[in-house]
Every structure is written in C-alpha cells, then in structure tokens.
Design a protein around this nucleic acid. Structure first.
Length: 469
RNA sequence: GCCCCGAUGGUGUAGUGGCCUAUCAUGCAGCCCUGUCGAGGCUGCGACCCGGGUUCAAAUCCCGGUCGGGGCGCCA
C-alpha cells in the first residue's frame, strides 16, 4: 500500500484509508469520510462489517442498523464485493481480538463507525478474477481482466516497484549528468538491420514504428547534448513467443559523448547498484508483499541486496571457453544462446557483462578497433551485453563515430548508406566518440520481483497474440 | 516457423471407456449465529472448448479446428 501521508483531501474523502490506519490514535473521535472498494461485507443481522480498501490501505467500517438510515444500511449490507463505497463516520479504536493465553496483544487497530454513506458504483457478479480468493488464476485470465488483477495486493506492489525502479534509475542518471530526451516513434527507416518493423501509413508515405531510439539518441549526442537518456517504447514485429519477449516494450536507453564501452558499463552498474540499494532501503515492504504471495504459492522469497561493484566482465572469447568446458556445443562466432547462458550462469549467477563480441555479430553502428581480434582471428567489436543469470538485460557498446567506417559497416550488412543519410550526415561535421546502452525495463523487473514472465510486470502487454485490452 | 503438452461451473481443480445424476476448493444466492476479523454453521446455484468419428456405452479413445501452456528458433 502506498504512503499517503502527504496526500490532500479530495471531493470524495477527507482522509485516505492509509491516513486513518496510520493516524489512528490522534483521529479517534473525529469524523472522517473515506472511500474505497468493498473487499468483504460480513454480517446479515443488525450489524455488519465492511472491509474497505483504497490504494493506501484497508480499514474496517462498522455499521449498526440503529445508527443510520435503514435503506442505506441494507444497501451496503447487500453490496457486492469490489463495489465502490464512500462512508462517513467517527474513528474508533477496534475492540481487541481474543488472544490465546500467553499470546501478546497485537497493537491497537482503528475502524470507522459509520453514520452515513453512498454506494458510488456497484460491482457486477461474479468477479472474473477474485481479488482475495485463494485460487491461482492463470496469466491469460488475469491479463484479460487486468483492471481487476491490478487490485490484487501483490500485483499492485509489483507495479509500485516498477515505478520505483524507473524513479531511482532516473535519479541516478541525472546525478551523473544525463538529461532526459524523447525521440520519435514514427520513423522512415530501420534503426538496426535485421529486425522486423511494424509498417504503418504516415499520410501518403510508408513509415514504421520505431524499434529502438538508437540512431536518434546518437544524433542528440552528436548535436552536443553530451549525455542523454530516454525511457520509452520500442516496437518489434518478431514472432517470438517466450517469457521474456514482447512486441512492445519499454527500453531504458542512455548515450554519452567522450565515452567508450567500459565507461558506459560503469554507468550501468552504478545505476543498477543505486536502484537495488534504494529499494532495499525504502521499499522492502513492497518486496514483503510480493514474498507473502510467493510463499502462498510455494515459492521461495526474493531478496534485494545491492550487487557488488564492479560486475564481473566475461569477454565473449572467455564466455565461449566457459560454455565449451561446461559441455556446451559452441564455436567462436556462434551466438551465445539461452542454454549456453545457463552454463555461464552456473559460474556467474548474478549480473555480469559480456563485452567484446565479434564485429560480425553486432549492428553496423558498433565501434571496433583495428587489431583487436578474437582467439581465432575475427575482428572484435566494442559491443557488450549485460546478463542476469540466463537472461539478457542490456545490449550496448561504443559507437562508430568515423563516418567512412560507418558507411562501410552499412554496406557490409547489406544496407544502402543512401537510406541512412539522415543519420550519417550527423557524423560529417565533427563527431565525438560516444557510447551507450539500452536496458529492458521489464527484464530488470523480473529479476527484482522474481516474476517468471515479463507479462507480469507490464501493465497491458502486447505479444504475438494479444492486442487487447 | 518447429517440437511437446493441455482445454471440466465465474476462478482454480479431481477424473485415464460403464462406478459421472461429474470431485474438491473458492465464488455466488439464501438462512442461522455473531463485535466479526483470512469469522463460523447450514441449504442451494453453477461446468465436460467447437465440429466430426469409433463404440451397446465417450469428460475419457481417434481426426480436424480454435484457444492456451512449456521448450526452441527468430530476436535482444
């Protein structure tokens, strides 16, 4: 539940439920108006108990037939679960529960003794997803009814954590001098060859949804903005169907001038360290909510400890050797696939960078230094990945700032430099060496919350077979 | 695109040819009790994905479809 200590009263309530729960003692005897969802309504006689929940807490409202208008009493008593109800009443200390001999008394709790109220909106029955039911609802049903799924405490906590991750990430980058930008999502050409784009009609011409802010954040840096970041959507028309891929996802991107791959790996590990540190200092109650649910599902708890710096660097050539010695079939020049990552992860279970991939495997905008060659002679690049366990979080690298090399790289991957003049022209008038990365926000959230599927931490995920709700 | 698996009340499930008028939980409706507190007790409601086939007999076996899950690929 969110901390609402600074929230102002609104037209519908004098206090948040959280304020009454927390403020308790000092509010006893005062009249408050609160509003929320009816979590349960118990009691069919002359008294009834209404458990009300808003985004900040839950509290019991106590209703007595004699204390209020009879028709309202009956309406609330027969209200369906999840109906929204506003009540006005006096804050009182709850009668203490009966405790077994020798058990300690729990701290006092407070309730609202209702004098009047309104049913704001009645909930239909049955609920397609029970909010407090002890059944393990399938992900597909949950996503079809996300508006209800979000009311579940642990789901709500996951999205609060998502917001915190974005907040702390932003905070950290700002302290390192990065400024936030917004790049266009409607584009005319591919940012990276090889990826399928969603085509669209832009008035009379053909356009695409952007698959990455890559080229535009570079142009911003070339234009002298020096250090930039963007948190925004990326769209990929790939027909994948896994727990970690979506066709629309939010990418956390940075780009910085006068930096190389090692410099931006430093930015990244410091940022992740900061996020983890802040969560572990400020938001463990949210993790606690997630863990409570995990326990009910027979899963172990997730822990949050700021990872040690620096993260291990396992250069591509070394990663290949680890896979080979772990029994994996792989050769220099092959991609490191998920089952290979499992082998590496058995030695490096946490965050680890894999720098210096073969140039032939990296996009055209990645920088390479002449003479940096792999164990078998191929040209290495200054591109890197960040993995956590078997999952890739990030891809990044130093960028090619020499326009003639850039154009050759384009030709090498079968692209026509003439289609990219909007980009290459940015390099013709003096270009600072620069580097950057893009991080999948949902994948980072999976690590933090222990979610087994990115869809859990994306509000309304878009995958191969889902465009609604 | 490939391989494997699955589809039973609103939700989550049991069920492997006749014992199914289909199990249990949760939910919903109602009643009783009650300053309750993950309340409790009682009664009731509600389902075999669609189409075809095999069989005396199909939730159960076969074929096709649709939808979903897992793994992979693609991708990062």
């Amino acid at each position: 539940m969110r901390d609402s200590s600074n929230w102002k009263p609104t037209s519908y309530r004098t206090h948040t439920i959280g304020q009454v729960v927390e403020g308790g003692e000092s509010l006893v005897g005062s009249e408050v108006t609160v509003a929320g969802y009816a979590e349960t309504v118990r009691g069919r006689g002359a008294i009834c108990f209404l458990m009300l929940r808003d985004g900040t807490g839950r509290i019991q409202a106590f209703l007595k037939k004699d204390n209020m208008e009879e028709s309202l009493f009956e309406a609330i008593q027969s209200a369906t679960r999840e109906s929204t109800i506003q009540v006005t009443g006096v804050v009182a200390k709850k009668r203490p529960p009966k405790v077994a001999e020798g058990e300690p008394m729990p701290p006092p709790e407070f309730e609202v003794s209702v004098g009047s109220g309104t049913i704001l909106a009645e909930a239909a029955t049955p609920l397609p997803v029970g909010i407090t039911d002890e059944v393990n609802v399938g992900l597909d049903v949950r996503l079809d009814n996300r508006h209800l799924d979000l009311r579940r405490t642990h789901v709500n906590a996951m999205f609060q954590l998502r917001s915190k991750v974005l907040q702390y990430g932003r905070e950290h980058l700002i302290t390192e001098g990065f400024q936030e930008i917004n790049s266009p999502k409607i584009i005319a050409a591919a940012a990276e060859g090889g990826t399928n784009l969603f085509p669209m009609k832009y008035f009379e011409t053909d356009a695409y949804l952007s698959q990455s802010p890559q080229l535009y954040k570079q142009l911003a840096v070339l234009g002298g903005l020096e250090r930039v970041f963007e948190i925004g959507p990326a769209f990929r028309a790939e027909k994948h169907d896994t727990y970690r891929h979506l066709n629309e996802f939010v990418s956390f991107d940075i780009e910085g001038a006068w930096m190389d791959d090692e410099d931006v790996m430093g930015v990244q590990e410091r940022m992740i360290h900061y996020i983890w540190k802040e969560i572990s200092h400020n938001d463990m109650s949210l993790i606690g909510v997630v863990n409570e649910y995990r326990e009910s599902q027979g899963k172990g708890p997730v822990t949050v400890e700021a990872p040690e710096l620096p993260f291990p660097r396992i250069p591509y050539c070394e990663a290949i050797e680890i896979v080979k010695s772990g029994g994996g079939e792989i050769q220099w020049g092959d991609d490191i696939e998920s089952h290979h990552c499992d082998i590496i992860a058995s030695q490096y279970p946490g965050f680890h960078f894999i720098p210096r991939w073969p140039m032939s495997m990296k996009p055209f905008y990645i920088h390479h230094k002449q003479g940096e060659e792999g164990s078998e002679g191929g040209q290495l690049s200054r591109g890197f990945d960040l993995n956590f366990g078997r999952d890739e979080m990030t891809s990044g690298g130093a960028r090619e700032h020499r326009v003639e090399v850039l154009e050759q790289n384009l030709r090498d991957v079968g692209l026509d430099p003439a289609d990219f003049t909007f980009y290459t022209d940015g390099f013709r008038y003096g270009a600072p060496p620069h580097a950057g990365w893009g991080l999948g926000v949902a994948r980072l959230l999976m690590v933090l919350t222990g979610a087994g599927n990115v869809r859990e931490v994306v509000l309304f995920p878009r995958d191969r077979s889902r465009v609604t709700p």
